[in-house]
Amino acid sequence: MLVISCIKQVPDTTQVRIDPVTNTLIREGIPFIINPYDSHALEESLRLKDRYGMRTVALSMGPPNTVATLKKAYAIGVDEAILLSDRCFGGADTLATSKVLSAAIERLDKQEKVGIVFCGKQTIDGDTAQVGPGIASRLGFSQLTLVDRIESIDFLRKRIKVRRKLEGRHEIVEAPLPVMITVVRELNRPRYPTVPMRIESEEKEIKVWDNSVLKLDAETVGLKGSPTWVSKIFSPERDQGEIIGDGINDPAGTANLLIDKLLSKDLLAV
């Protein structure tokens, strides 16, 4: 049974600034990283590999430089890394992206049954949280979002039980396989590549599937197949904050004021 993790290479957004004139992201001098949530998805697929010996594949759709991120997936132990890259895939929104990823998963499913697809709960550059669910609904997989623990997998009955992390509560749910799972950070701690694995990964080849492989209608993918597009990016004006208390002379009292304030705005719960 195959485990797939869908990963995306994103700019390190802690550093992304918006050009005030053109209202676009300034990407110059910004390093790329693997979308942090996806690194947890990747890690979980590797844990299943370690535990059950399942074969793992990392999938990523993106420009050719995404190989750097897929190399890292090899360096921590995935069996196969596939880049979905084609000019016509470019400029895709979540709908078009999930279409390409689904096509790739279907193709893989023909060789070996896909049991689980892991995605990060969202990306840090798009923040939509739609691609995972999009894949699930296209493929007709069960859909388990915001998972912070895999409780059990019953391969005979083909069922999986997970814990979902919701606002202020947890939910244990069970679903039939195959399943698409989106993961939160609490799920695991991603491993760090060892040097022997890094060295080994240097030799591993990253497969590139373009549209001649996936054979999708070019009108339904990429920019052309995307019903949504970004019309403008801007930093919202922020209201002037307020200074409460006197932190220098009365730190304890000020801390209390702050707590009250946070409580009153429902930002903190007792």
């Binding site: 390093p31 760090y192 040097v195």
Partner: peptide
């Protein structure tokens, strides 16, 4: 190098930061 171990998660983050930034 062999086990990918760290003294703590904060160290892993910092090390990743050095690698990336």
């Amino acid at each position: 190098l062999m086990e990918g171990a760290f003294p703590g998660d904060e160290v892993k983050t910092a090390v990743n930061n050095i690698e990336v930034n």
